[in-house]
Design a binder for these strands. Structure first.
Length: 452
DNA sequence: TCTGGGGTCCTAGGACCC
DNA sequence: TCTGGGGTCCTAGGACCC
């Protein structure tokens, strides 16, 4: 810890919604909700006008609509948010070289790394206000809330106390007293489950937590969590601000409008996801050894299956192959609402001639078998490449009863494309490609499957 | 109309090796 | 022959964050 309040936590206010209001003046002063707008969507961000009606992040969009029917409901525009975020982060980096982004709308800034020392509360307040003005100018009018203190914990909690558009600097030496009256849930890492456990031990406020001894805490919440919580409760926090954190995993997942059961369709979707993951790996110049398939069942229980390769890969065909085999181990009865494909155990090198990939490259080509039923009824099958003059290239999502549903995105596209349904005899919808071909086999270590 | 999508970190058990 | 401890790797699940 340090002697002056030189750790800043900057949090953009209702970020996604504020960007939408910035770009569309008619939305200013109005309730705006950004998030999934489909039947299973959830709220990412609500403008302060919408929050008055009880709309909150992570709430289902359906519930938000019933609480605030007059709000504007918008799907997210991540590219725009990313660009705005970069402009804001640049202002922070102009202030100090040591900036740690936590997400698109949040970051720590270490003023000590800017060569500033012996800062008073007034100094830091002035710096925070200047930064807010710079952010506003660089972002086209967005407001931020800033917290400052002698540690990350204090800065982070402080930034939340005067939202929106506030500045809170916690004077050095007052940290433990500052935290004492607060609920334990203000401490990042204490969620519903931990709060429940602590509550059963009679602990609700940080003051209660400060009374507990470390051994008792570890018994309640486990070793790692207990020791860190014990320190944080007394505002003992030495964690440094770190600018470059390594990526540990890359994944893609999708929740379906209705639960899926058809194995061939799900396999085709897993393929697309593998391609998207591979593209993102390649873009980041990363490759990974462990492929994970995630499935969320109709009853919301979630399962993962993973398999580790002998060497890292960023080859979409290898990832797809592994994902597909993991899918074979998955019980789809009852239907799944979500499917995901991820790669972890990342290596920071570019693939070359490693065993894994060369072997896969020489493996025989296999044609995917598709259910006859699907072909007979409609002439389309899941995963099939199609083309439409108005929407471009796409692939078959599902078909039946004389209609075919198409997703208009390429195999490797980063963002989901629009979904459209056509009559199967629609002359504009053409099938340019033969059934997909796949390579088989990839080198793997050990086993896979439920019991390793 | 219950419950997104992208992550991180931790735990626990089994395999395997020394 | 039996018992066992420690370390590492892998897998599955869960808590948590924005």
């Amino acid at each position: 810890m340090r002697g002056d309040p030189s750790v800043l936590h900057v949090d953009l206010d209702a970020f996604f919604a504020a960007v939408e209001q910035r770009d569309k003046p008619s939305l200013r002063g109005k309730a705006v909700v950004v998030g999934g707008i489909g039947v299973r969507g959830v709220v990412s961000t609500a403008s302060y006008e919408a929050r008055k009606y009880g709309v909150r992040s992570a709430m289902s969009t359906a519930e938000a609509r019933s609480r605030c029917p007059h709000a504007a409901y918008l799907g997210p525009r991540f590219e725009v948010y990313r660009r705005t975020s970069q402009a804001v982060m640049a202002e922070m980096r102009a202030l100090s070289p040591l900036v740690e982004p936590l997400s698109l709308d949040e970051a720590f800034v270490d003023l000590a790394a800017a060569g500033l020392s012996g800062l008073t509360v007034d100094d830091v307040e002035a710096i925070a206000n200047e930064l807010k003005a710079a952010i506003r100018a660089a972002s086209g009018g967005l407001t931020a809330s800033v917290g400052a203190g002698t540690s990350k914990l204090i800065a982070k909690i402080a930034s939340d106390l005067d939202k929106p558009d506030g500045v809170v600097v916690v004077p050095p030496g007052t940290e433990a007293a500052f935290l004492a009256p607060m609920q334990v849930t203000v401490i990042p890492g204490v969620g519903p489950a931990t709060a429940q456990r602590l509550s059963m031990a009679g602990v609700r406020t940080v003051a209660d937590l400060q009374q507990l001894d470390e051994e008792e805490l570890v018994r309640q919440v486990g070793s790692a969590h207990g020791t860190s919580l014990f320190r944080l409760a007394t505002a003992t926090d030495d964690r440094p601000v770190v600018s470059d954190r390594e990526t540990k995993s890359i994944s893609v997942e999708d929740t379906f409008e209705t639960d899926l059961i058809d194995r061939a369709l799900i396999a085709a979707i897993a393929d697309r996801m593998a391609h998207r993951v591979a593209e993102r790996l390649q873009k980041a110049q990363l490759s990974g050894r462990t492929v994970t398939l995630k499935s969320r069942m109709h009853d919301f229980t979630t399962h993962t299956r993973s398999s580790t390769l002998a060497g890292p890969t960023d080859d979409p065909r290898v990832i797809a192959r592994v994902a597909r085999r993991l899918l074979d181990d998955t019980d789809l009865a009852g239907g799944i609402r979500l499917l995901g494909v991820g790669v972890s155990s990342l290596a920071d090198w570019i693939q070359d001639d490693l065993f894994t990939d060369s072997e896969a490259a020489e493996a025989p080509i296999e044609v995917i078998e598709l259910p006859e039923r699907a072909r007979d009824q409609t002439g389309f099958y899941p995963g099939q490449d199609v083309h439409h003059p108005d929407f471009g290239p796409g692939w078959v999502w599902g078909s039946g009863r004389g209609r075919v549903t198409v997703r208009f995105e390429t195999a490797a596209s980063l963002t989901p494309g629009p979904v459209r349904t056509f009559a199967i005899d629609d002359p504009l919808l053409t099938k340019p490609a033969a059934p997909g071909a796949e390579r088989d086999d990839e080198a793997e270590t050990g086993n896979n499957g439920p019991n390793g």
